[in-house]
Design a protein around this nucleic acid. Structure first.
Lengths: 148, 148
DNA sequence: GTGAATGCAAACTCTTTGCATGACT
DNA sequence: AGTCATGCAAAGAGTTTGCATTCAC
């Protein structure tokens, strides 16, 4: 499922960029392909490592610039989960999204979703006097492998 | 109410530190008093500014070290809300807590709480296979003053 | 050819660490 | 006196910016 979402997203992302007048670009294509293949969020430095390992080396500054562009276009979201770095993951054009559990022991990052939670947040956003376009839920604790 | 919570917390914090063998300390007292007076989370640099304005100047390195100590003792929580900095706020010993709305336009930070949301998160944590000790919910959008 | 995209290096911000000085018991 | 706490300065990590080069159109 995540693969299908991802490859659909890659096409979508290229179409959006094309329509907004951006040229074909090697580094950007590499990032889009990588993000499309990921089940969960990656940091900029993790992205750099993956791309290098794949033989598609992209300069660090370019990675940040491309991620900023993709975020501005609403194609990726930027998350801070509490370990001092930003992480990036694709935004499903259909609106599907998940939240994150971060193991404070080993740093492992696990996605989850929960309909009930989403409903609560929707109700809450409606109740409040501000316009909530996005939300983020992070659970902290220890994962099954790290339980003390 | 937040004042009462805060001053109760200051006593509590000093008791906890005393019991864990920490000495009386000028800089730490200044931070505890400041945190106790705040309705919402502050960054380390904001803390530095407030303390300087109050004539209780504390070195930046000490601020970070004290915040780390307080966090280790379970007295403050460290939050990352998506603007690249960490923020700190007291943890109410009675377990009361709030979450945050961050205005992406002006950077304003607003606390809110919601029973229904807490219930959803509790149910979710029980359902999942990992041990969730803490959670954080951040809403992003534009506040009433910044609505386009 | 023109302007966008990229790479490289330097700058910047936030945070942490090392070491000397000062304060509490 | 002994050791914890603090300040100062330097080092680190992540991120951003400036500028020259390369590439798409």
């Amino acid at each position: 499922m995540s693969t299908e979402t991802g490859s659909g997203w890659a096409e979508h992302a290229r179409a959006v960029l094309d329509q907004s007048g951006h040229r074909k670009a090697r580094a950007r294509d590499a990032l889009i392909d990588l993000l499309a293949s990921q089940p969960c969020a990656l940091s900029a430095l993790e992205i750099e490592d993956h791309l290098r390992d794949d033989g598609r080396r992209v300069a660090r500054a370019s990675i940040y610039r491309i991620l900023e562009l993709l975020a501005d276009q609403g194609l990726v979201s930027r998350l801070e989960l509490g370990d001092g770095t930003s992480r990036y993951e694709l935004i499903d054009p259909a609106g599907e999204h998940h939240h994150h559990f971060l193991c404070d022991v080993c740093g492992n990052l696990l996605p989850f979703d929960d309909r009930d939670l989403e409903r609560s947040i929707d109700r809450l956003a409606r109740r409040l006097q501000f316009d909530a376009r996005d939300h983020e839920v992070v659970l902290h604790g220890s994962c099954s492998g790290c339980r003390s």
